[in-house]
Design a protein around this nucleic acid. Structure first.
Lengths: 202, 202
DNA sequence: CCGAGAGTTGACCGACCGGTCGACTTGTTC
DNA sequence: GAACAAGTCGACCGGTCGGTCAACTCTCGG
């Protein structure tokens, strides 16, 4: 049973690493199996298809995020606006570490998969979208708190939250296309300047 | 000779459409040839490899952009800040038209290719990056003009220009992952709120 | 000690991939 | 009309793709 979990986990984390570092289409099941030291038959014992593997990878990464640096960044003990800086810092250091190690910036797994797959696979697209919605909700909480504490003038927190998430993804995209994590450090902090006004209600 | 150009052009525009609507890896040369009504041998007469085709597609799209809506949006006769709105509008209508026609949002070809390929192919990555740098320069011009006209307080125009480009790409990414162009319309205008201050010099 | 289910193995499948090649057609030039 | 280059054609190549399968081992409850 321990060995069972090990095999599945090995496949999962190997796939995650490869998908993140390259792309979904570019990584074959054979390669995953070789790196994970698993036979092909065993692979298909745990995952009915490559698509299922992708879903599992997405869930796995989303989980790690939720319990990892996202939880730290959105820590309710931090002043709201500092959470945004923390998040940008975390993104920067992560990308920088990856680049120093492997020579190239992997970017954001979810952003990568979204652009690569979401025109071809509705199921995966929806799954990634759900991850983004959750992330957006964390931004929203933060903004609401900032507003209620009087740290920011009133604004459309839900829309601004999405704008901030979009900006973060965009900054990582640009940094990846330049293969330079410094882009994140330089452009990232401007996330706090984004504002979408409340719709006029009268 | 006319027929020659026709064949090459047919391959190019077919490939562009397919790459944009799906992805680089997902589209095979065979499929491109079939849609373009060209034989494989002819394909390799014009393009030495799939990579060369990708480069040609990038150049072709960048050209169309530069002479198309980018030229319109960054029209020097428009007030600087209106150019940004024009650009967001253009992005919105384009994505919306594509979605109405094909049911899915293709997103931005350059963003898509950047995230899919730039970890695997330095040459293509650099080419896409060059396109982004040119786009960023257009933003920069616009911001400099706005500042010199007193429409905006002084700011780091070069960095803010990059931030705006990143934001636009991020908004399109988020919209694609939701398969909903309205995201562009709602989040897009906030591009004007982005600011990166000038570095302190004293 | 047996049987059953979970997990493992690796050979094998048809389809498809990017790319090659030699034969052929067409248009141009002298 | 000979000569040549440009362009066209489609069969063919080795390799890889995602996925299948029957046979095997291991573990553990009864």
């Amino acid at each position: 049973m321990n060995q069972t979990l090990d095999t599945r986990t090995r496949i999962l984390s190997t796939a995650r690493e490869l998908f993140h570092g390259r792309s979904y289409a570019d990584v074959g099941i054979k390669e995953i199996c070789e790196l994970a030291q698993v036979q092909k038959g065993s692979f298909y014992h745990f995952f009915p298809s490559k698509q299922d593997l992708a879903m599992a990878v997405i869930d796995n990464m989303a989980d790690d995020w939720a319990h990892g640096f996202v939880a730290e960044a959105f820590d309710r003990d931090l002043p709201p606006l500092e959470r945004l800086d923390y998040l940008v810092d975390a993104a920067y250091y992560w990308q920088k570490a990856a680049k120093d190690l492997e020579g190239r910036m992997p970017g954001c797994l979810f952003g990568n998969l979204a652009l690569e797959i979401s025109t071809r696979d509705e199921v995966i697209r929806a799954r990634i979208n759900a991850v983004f919605e959750k992330a957006s909700a964390r931004f929203d909480e933060t903004l609401e708190e900032a507003v209620s504490m009087g740290l920011m003038p009133a604004l459309d927190t839900a829309a601004t939250a999405q704008a901030m998430l979009a900006y973060l993804e965009g900054v990582i995209l640009l940094a990846k296309s330049r293969n330079d994590p410094e882009v994140v450090r330089i452009l990232g902090p401007a996330i706090k300047t984004l504002r979408i006004e409340l719709p006029l209600t009268n």
